[in-house]
Every structure is written in C-alpha cells, then in structure tokens.
Design a protein around this nucleic acid. Structure first.
Lengths: 358, 358
DNA sequence: CTGAAAGCGCTTACAG
DNA sequence: CTGAAAGCGCTTACAG
C-alpha cells in the first residue's frame, strides 16, 4: 500500500513564523487573552487562516493538566433509553465545550472496568455512568478520588446521583396494578442476580408487594426468550407463563424487557393486556408507539441529562470537597394499553389503603 | 463550596523516584520494551502498584504525535440503527485498544461541523461517519487530508465507504411492492431536500419507479405527524393519506420513519397492511417485534461495524495514498407483516420483467 | 541493561 | 503590548 502520510498539521510555531511574532503572542490571541494589539491580532488571525491552523488540544491539555473530555459509561447503547440519554448528554456537553468519550460494557466477561481504566488514562475530567452493573462498584477503587463520577438513572454507594426516585416509581407501578385487581404480579429483571435485589426498581417492587401482603417473585428471561430463570432454576418460559401459578401482571425492569415479555406472551397466545398486563419503566424507544401502547413509568429524560451534565461540570470545577448529592426528579405513570383490570380477584386486600397513601 | 482538589495522579517521575531508577527505564517497562532486567522490571512494577500509577495517555499522545482515539459522527443516537452500529463499533474499537469520541449533529442550525472541528482539535486518528447530512460534504474542507474518514451505512463524494448497496436495496424493496400489485408507491424521506434526491435509497426508489413506468413521489412528515410536505408544499397528512391519489404502499427511508407512518396511518383508520403497505430500511430496534412485524431491508450490522473499524484502522496505519475504497455488503429483504398484496391493480406493467431481472 | 538529554505543542508567569 | 524561558508527562534516539 502506498503510504503517503496524512498532512502534519501546522503548529503554533508555524503561525508565529508566518506572522513574524512569538509563540506567546500567538497563544494569547488563540486564547483570546486581553491586551493584544488589534493589529497584532489581525496578523495572527491572517496567519491562522493561511495555514488552516487548528489548536492541538492534546498539547493544551497536557500543560493545563486537565482535559475537557467527559467519559460516559454506557451499559447498552441498544437500549433506546440509554441511547436517548447519551444523545442528550452529548448535546448539553457540547454546549459547554466538553467532548464526550464513551465505552460500553461488553457483555462477555470482564465488564466496564477496562474501558473505565482507559478513559482514566486519557484523563477524562469526569465520569458519567448510565448504568451500573456490579462492576461499577469495583470501579470505585479504580477511580479513587481522581475524578468525580455521577450516576445517571442509576446509583451506586458513592458519587452523585441524578435520577428519579426509582423505588417510588416501582411502588407507584405496583400500586396501580394492585388497584386494578392484580395479585400475581411478577417482576421481570434484567439478569439473574446473586444479591437479593439487584436494583432499586426491584426493591420498590418487593416493598410494594410485601406491604400489600403479596408474594414478590422475580424472573429473568434468556435472550432467545425460551427459558426463564426463577430463583436460580431455569425452565421453559411457557411453563412459567401458562402454569397454574402464572402471573396476571408483569412489572418489567425497563421497557426493553417489557416489550420482550409482551412479545413472548402473545406468541404463547396470551394477549396483552387481556390475559397478561405488562408495565414497563423508562418510556423509551417505541414504548409509546400505537402498536405497542406500553404502560410505563416515564422518566424526564431531558431534565435528567441536563442536570447530570451540570452536576458533573460543577463537581469538576468545585473539587471533591462536598458530600455526594442525590438529585431526584419526578416521574410519571403513563397508562396506555398494555395494562388492564384483572377481574378474577377474589381476596380482599387489608393493607391496601396504607399502600395507596404511601 | 469546599474545594478539596482531586488527587493529582502520580507521574512516571514519581515511579522512577520510588523505584530508584530513571524515567527512561520506567518508560521501558511501561511500554513493555525488550531488554529490561527482570529484577528491574519487578521493582518498577512494585512502584507502579504502590503508587497506583496510570499512564498519562495525553502526554504519550503528544510525543507520539498520534492518538488512539477514533471520532464518530452520529446523526441521531435516538435512531436505534445508528445506536446499534455505534455500540458495535465501540466494541470492535476497544478490542483494538482504540477509544471512541463522539459528537452528534445537533438538529438546530449549525450541523456537525462544530463537533468535527473539536474532534480534529483533539487529534482523533480517524473519523467514522454514521450519517452524512449535507454538512458532511462541507466537512470535507474542514478535514482536508488530516485524517482518514470512513462512511458507514452512508456515503459522500470522498472517503471510504462501508455499506450495503443502498440503491440496490431500494430497488429490491420497490420491485417487491410492484410484484405485490402496488403502483402508487411513495417514498417517505427524512427531511425535505432541495436537491432532487437526498440519498441513495431515494435514488434507488426513483430508479425502480421510473424503470417500471411509475411516477416517483417523495413526501416528508413533520415531527408531530400532522403535516406532510410534498415537493415543497405542506398539507395535512390526512389529505395525503386519504386523498384521491393516495398511496397504497410507502417505502420509508428507514425503520423509524416506517414506524412513524404506520402509526399515523392506523390513527387515521388506515390499517397496515390492509389499507396501506409499509416497507422500511435497516431492520433496527423494534422493527421485528411481534407487534410491529415491519417488512424491511435488513442490513448486516455486525459485519458493517467490524469492516468499518478495520477499514479505518488500516487507513490510519497505511497513510492516505490509496484511492477511496467502497465496500458493499449484502442485504436482505425481510418480509414480515407490514406489506401485503394490493388487489385493485388494473393496469398491466410492461417494463416489469426487465425490472425483475435488474 | 540503564540513564541523560532533547523534544512533542502548547500555556504561563515574568521581564522588558 | 510582546517575547524568552520553563515546564506539562511522556517517548525516543543515543551514550555509556
């Protein structure tokens, strides 16, 4: 392959030479410093145009000992919610003259740790987590107190968080299903977890169920949709959805999962919402499409992204001194057509009024 | 705000001091250079662990005069197809020890140019375009021959392209609709364009229609789905879809648009596919969901992303010498349930056999 | 096998 | 208002 090299960009030195000035002066006009003679400024600008000079930010970052790069840790860009948040973050971030570097957590084996390490080596000014696997907890050690971290729509035991009150969101979702007569309400989680409850949504679900004297039950579904895992044991999904103890409603950890179970249920002849109510979380992607009409807990994406960026940038400017903050925004139960009243409810629910007032 | 600063990371100099060696030697072990005494290596490694040292890649990049950052220009992360490609690229890229920096084209006014400029200032080693607005054409001047660019699933008049044969894809789509008896087949584009045809898909559509002696017709739909624009004139979407000259099939520029028109049509009482056939492009996001069953031209996402990354990395290594390459991968017409036979076809189509054999 | 020196392209006091 | 000098944290010949 003929390897004619790419052109080596001009440096500040080239500009100085052409403008017959010193590097310092050129630097002054580039940085828009005050106290440069207008005529001098013009000469420099002319040289910049002539050479098509572009600041080498790598060099600037080195001397300033800080970068204007934000690292964003994405759990899964194929999740429309995360993609939408990432997009919004990209926009707000650009408005503040920051660039975004991202890594996504590979699903195979070693999690985001490697990507985070590399972003740290690139000296990102701060980290934005759009998802926190268990690995984010390990990442704490990696990050130490080098850069601030903010968790967007998720949280860990450290760092700022910008999210809705996920537990309350789940509670609201379950309360609604109970009001609609459902008792056998199951939770569809993302992946089997060894810990008791993998996330706040699951916690909120369990809270609500227990408060109502109902039995919480979490299941996971394989990628191909054939196998369900409940409490560590795997079985055909049909057995679960069509069995004697089948759920009348499923509260999914997010809309992707909700759409997945909706598809599976209908493939098995279980119409949604007639035979099974499905309630999601996020209100992302096609959830609101006329063919889906997924009931869900809607998150205020725009505000979340804006506040997350603001919080991180303020941290970057302000140092590590203050305590982690927890910003909780409002959510909204979007009732569409994937949920319906369950009519065969027989038992009375004693604790229900308490639940509603919670 | 108390501003306790974030810890200043240790440098190679600190490691050298602790290990009682020179910076050069430390650098040698960091870069895994040959010819370092094993015992020396151990001492350095111990110091690295003790200090929790992490290479400052910013400094390395400056001296090496190249970075391991790939810039990716995203048209719209809310488009599941682009998000999926971005995710795949992130994965393949990480495997080659590159990091990804992205910018998304803000829809308001000034397009991706600003983001591209900033990525260039960051000295990205190469650029990956996931979408090319008209602005990508302007970007050519900005980029000059500083870094290689590859266009993924889109193309411009310069740079390598890795995509399917979009024109052929459109041709296949239209041929199918014609075979199914449709004559009034309209194209749903992304945005009104001043040029005759905005993209290869539209071109392929027009080719196919013209070859069959049919009248091509392109429309655009506003965000809220209320207004359609045809040939520069705006009108209520209902007039278009329910009018005398209404289409019996719509070929959308991508799945997002296909899903949008499907929703609008059904809101107007036009069942899909009974009253209107809809054919998309990409096979992304929820297109294949049981509730959507969108017929579409499926792109081989994984291979596209892999080949794009490989192509760019090879360019980076190989210099700018060789001619732009055009890698075309195969596509697949996915027939699902958003398209159906149109039975009221009355006229015979002379040129049709020729079209089929094309 | 190890280390002293120069240099990547900037910014930042500071002298004039 | 302008410029000479030092330095950011590395890598890269090169001498020893």
């Amino acid at each position: 392959m003929a390897t004619q090299p790419y052109v080596r960009p001009p440096t500040i030195h080239d500009v100085a030479r052409v403008a017959k000035l010193s590097k310092s002066t050129v630097s002054n006009v580039i940085r828009n410093a005050v106290g440069v003679h207008p005529a001098t400024r013009e000469r420099v600008q002319a040289a910049i145009v002539e050479l098509d000079y572009q600041t080498n930010i790598v060099a600037r970052q080195l001397v300033q000992q800080r970068t204007s790069i934000l690292g964003i840790v994405i759990g899964d860009l194929a999740d429309p919610f995360q993609a939408e948040i990432a997009k919004l973050i990209g926009g707000f971030t650009a408005a503040l003259s920051y660039q975004v570097m991202f890594c996504n957590a590979p699903s195979d084996g070693n999690p985001e740790a490697e990507g985070i390490r590399r972003m740290l080596e690139h000296r990102v000014a701060g980290l934005l987590f759009l998802s926190c696997r268990a690995a984010a907890e390990q990442a704490r050690h990696l990050i130490g107190s080098r850069v601030p971290s903010v968790f967007v729509c998720c949280s860990a035991g450290w760092g700022d968080v910008v999210s809705i009150d996920e537990r309350a969101g789940a509670l609201t979702a379950i309360s609604h299903l109970i009001v609609e007569g459902h008792r056998a309400i199951w939770h569809l989680a993302d992946a089997p977890s060894d810990s008791r409850y993998a996330c706040d949504r699951e916690l909120g679900y369990a809270d609500a169920m227990l408060a109502a004297g109902l039995q919480p039950r979490t299941l996971c579904i394989s990628r191909d949709g054939e196998t369900a895992t409940i409490g560590g044991v795997a079985m055909p999904i049909a057995d679960v959805l069509l069995g004697d103890e089948r759920p009348t409603a499923v509260f999914a950890v997010n809309d992707m999962r909700a759409l997945q179970i909706m598809q599976i249920a209908e493939r098995l002849g279980l119409g949604v919402p007639d035979k099974l109510s499905v309630l999601g979380f996020d209100d992302a992607g096609s959830a609101g499409h006329g063919r889906m009409e997924l009931s869900t807990i809607a998150q205020p994406k725009e505000q979340l992204a804006q506040l997350a960026v603001d919080t991180l940038v303020r941290r970057i400017a302000g140092g590590a001194g203050t305590e982690p903050a927890r910003h909780l925004l409002g959510f909204q139960l979007m009732l569409r057509r994937s949920t319906a009243t369950h009519h065969q409810a027989t038992e009375r629910l004693e604790s229900f009024p308490a639940l509603l007032s919670a």
